[in-house]
Simulated scan of single mutants.
Amino acid sequence: MIPYGKQHIDQADLDAVLEVLNSDFLTQGPKVPEFEKRLADYCNVDFAVAVNSATSALHIACLSLGLGSGDIVWTSPNSFVASSNCALYCDAQIDFVDINPFTGNMCVEALEKKLATAETNHRLPKVIIPVHFSGQSCDMKAISALAKRYNIKIIEDASHAVGAEYQNDKVGSCKYSDISIFSFHPVKIITSAEGGAALTKCSKLAKTMQMFRSHGVTGATQEFSEQSHGPWYYEQQLLGFNYRMTDLHAALGITQLNKLDYFVNKRNLQAKRYIDKLSALPVTPLDVKNDNLSSYHLFVVLLNEKSARSKRFIVEKLREEGVFAHVHYIPIYKQPYYQRLGFSQFYCEQAEEYYKRAITLPLFPLMTEEQQDKVIASLKKVLLMADSIE
């Protein structure tokens, strides 16, 4: 079975992890701050806070911005549930902004219209979380301009977009946001096995997130509320969590970061090959804007209206052919939990249209041209089968 995504682990990665296993530190040692500095330097941002998952990073990002009961967060329905759950963890309310169905990203026009209505109704969000779907940045300059107009904070969910660029700046630079979030799950662009990070230009936000990731505890003398009792002394100043990244995971992250540009370049070459070879089939790859460099975490195609009626058949038959086609994503508000919160089935019209038509094809750096040709041939075969049963 050709998977839709797969990590790329080489000897350098293995050696780095083994070195940590043979060292004095397995959890909180020198590799975590080294990884953070390397990541921050890569993105040209001041601070990176490494944690055990992107979900944890989203949670502490929300907390650091003071999100709480009575506040509202807006995000994209076209994402994994973590992008919205993070608001609910803080006892805030969640709402969704419709997408552009041809990019999968938050629609600026829909956001502008929704903000105008929300201002009239005195229901503006405290935080907006745009999701850089599939590896392409949202139009952050436009979103940032709207957020400033209404005094709203921005957390970029860039879990898919490590190594991507927006208007010649690295995603993660926080040029148009307060905090950016990365994921290092095995199917993402680089992996630390499990892990995530929150990046920011603000030292206060960084310090707050560092405390939230480690039980709300600090050992920094200058931050103590009373005089230190001795070298063992620490203080819990917040109700934090055990969201720390270990040195084992950070060591893997460091060696993976060395290959990040190669991975992004390889994924772009594979995507271009897909686009060229799929041009004769009744599918449409997602648009990538000219001022963006996508990291192509996912390669999504949209079925035409006729084929979309047989979407389940197409995905099931592709898997029978040894091609693990997938779907990203079911609109979050369609999940049973969110339905119980009061969201209707067709809350975001364009997200529904996208979901009817979207399928994800395999793409990962170790994928061979032979495997890619098999995906293309299998898709052509299955589309013909679907057409014959219409």
Rank of each mutant, 00 (worst) to 15 (best):
C202P: 01
L205W: 01
A164S: 07
I190G: 02
Y176D: 07
V162D: 15
K148W: 07
G195E: 05
S173G: 12
A147C: 14
K170D: 02
I179N: 00
T208C: 14
S137Q: 06
I143K: 05
K188V: 07
S177E: 01
A193R: 13
F212A: 05
K204A: 12
K207Q: 15
V187I: 14
A197I: 10
Q210A: 05
D169N: 08
D139F: 07
G163T: 06
S177N: 01
D169G: 13
I129K: 00
A147I: 10
K175N: 13
Y166V: 13
A147W: 02
T200W: 01
G196D: 00
I129D: 03
Q210M: 09
D139P: 14
C174G: 13
A197Q: 06
R213N: 00
V131N: 07
A164F: 12
S173E: 09
T191N: 04
A198K: 05
A158G: 10
P130I: 13
S137D: 11
Y150H: 04
G135M: 14
V187W: 02
I143C: 14
D169P: 04
I190E: 03
S159Y: 04
Q167A: 10
V131L: 00
D139R: 10
V187H: 12
H185D: 14
I181T: 10
F133D: 10
Q210S: 11
A198S: 00
V162Y: 06
K175L: 15
A206K: 02
C202K: 00
S180W: 01
E165S: 11
Q210V: 01
T200C: 05
G163K: 13
L205Y: 06
D178K: 07
H132E: 02
Q136S: 06
A158Q: 13
S144C: 09
Y150D: 00
N151S: 05
S192A: 07
S183D: 06
K201Q: 12
F182R: 03
Y176V: 04
I181L: 11
A206M: 05
N151A: 10
S214F: 08
S183F: 06
G195K: 01
L146V: 11
I129Y: 05
S159K: 12
G163M: 00
A206N: 01
D157A: 02
Q136I: 00
I179G: 06
A164L: 12
M211W: 11
Q136M: 02
H160S: 14
E156C: 12
P130E: 02
I181V: 04
G163F: 08
L205I: 09
S203Q: 15
D157Y: 06
I152G: 03
S214K: 03
A193S: 08
K153W: 09
H185W: 12
I155Q: 00
I190Y: 06
S180P: 00
Q136E: 06
K188G: 10
M211K: 10
N168T: 15
Y150M: 04
N151E: 12
Y176S: 04
F212N: 09
D157P: 08
Q210F: 09
E156H: 09
S203I: 11
Q167G: 11
I143S: 12
M140I: 12
G163D: 12
Q210R: 02
Q167R: 15
I189E: 10
G172P: 00
D157N: 11
K175A: 14
S183R: 09
I143Q: 05
A206G: 04
I179S: 02
Q167F: 11
S180Y: 03
A206C: 07
C174R: 05
V171Q: 04
G163A: 14
L205F: 09
Y166C: 09
I190H: 02
H132S: 12
Q136R: 07
